[in-house]
Design a protein around this nucleic acid. Structure first.
Length: 272
DNA sequence: CAATCAACCTGGGTGC
DNA sequence: TGCACCCAGGTTGATT
């Protein structure tokens, strides 16, 4: 599910819904997804309050009143849902935080790839976050973007999705940004012309902002913190639109495999 | 260094 | 109906 816009939407929802609440207990039927261990997390988290929630890349960070930080990665099918205590379990619910005020924060995850990790302090967090490239909406400037492109001969879509190069862009928004910039996903990153790089730079920001505006893409499993779908899937440019007309009216959007991932593009708008 | 692939899991869709 | 197979928004680690 979650790329930058989806995680950002959840972060904003959760900030309104559960900041200030105290964690009363934790239960799980999938302890493998909790690091370093369920017991360690229980011991330090129960009794603490949630002071603040932030997003960096596709990671959510819960800053706790005891100075520790819970980091969550939703991977492909993770959901974070806020529900009233006593309401029926959610589909694929695996971890439940009981909160003050009669609420529950539930982690649901069909494929169980997602995880939750307790960090001791900000130094540990900094170490983890240092692995990621710049935030495309806040930190990334055109010049730095050009440097990133020049640093690799891999295909441009692979580079866009490389979290070490740029944080938060995944398969949906990479495909759509490349269409908007009229660049073939298989082009070598370091072969883009200055004008193309600039178009792509702006296209990335545009599709990510659209994703946030529409509260994420609920093509398959994504739901926001209240269990509602996002709407960006109704505005897909090329992603998951194989065989359909592109927005310029050209006959057929194609689907290929690139780096093992489904990749969509218009062969007329985006030439190799 | 780049490309490929398997692994982590479960479920939906397709084709025989 | 049943079954085999392929596909899925992410990331890591092994292999070539």
């Amino acid at each position: 599910m979650p790329e930058l816009p989806e995680v950002e939407t959840i972060k904003r929802d959760l900030s309104k819904l559960i900041v200030g609440r105290k964690i009363l207990s934790i239960s799980t039927d999938s302890p493998k997804q909790i690091k370093p261990s369920l017991e360690m997390v229980k011991k330090s988290v129960v009794g603490a309050s949630i002071n603040k929630i932030e997003r960096r890349a596709k990671l959510l960070q819960f800053f706790l009143s005891n100075g520790e930080i819970l980091v969550v990665h939703l991977k492909l099918t993770g959901r974070l849902l806020v529900r009233e205590k006593g309401t029926p379990q959610d589909n694929w619910q695996h971890i439940c935080f009981s909160l003050s005020g009669g609420k529950e924060l539930r982690f649901a995850d069909l494929r169980k790839f997602g995880w939750l990790k307790l960090l001791k302090d900000k130094a540990e967090l900094e170490k983890l976050l240092a692995e990621f490239g710049p935030e495309p909406l806040d930190e990334l400037g055109l010049k730095e973007f050009q440097t990133i492109l020049a640093s690799s001969s891999r295909s441009i879509k692979i580079v866009l999705m490389d979290q070490k190069k740029i944080a938060g862009v995944g398969n949906i928004y990479a495909s759509d940004a490349l269409f908007l910039a009229k660049i073939h996903p298989g082009r070598a990153a370091n072969q883009l012309k200055a004008k193309e790089a600039q178009r792509l730079f702006e296209a990335i920001k545009k599709v990510l902002r659209a994703g946030i505006k529409y509260r994420g893409a609920s093509d398959q499993y994504y739901l926001d913190a209240l269990g509602h779908k996002g709407l960006y899937q109704e505005h897909f440019l090329v992603y998951n639109r194989a065989g359909k007309k592109c927005l310029e009216g050209h006959e057929k959007i194609e689907k290929i495999r690139l780096g093992g991932r489904g990749t969509y593009f218009c062969p007329v708008c985006q030439r190799l």
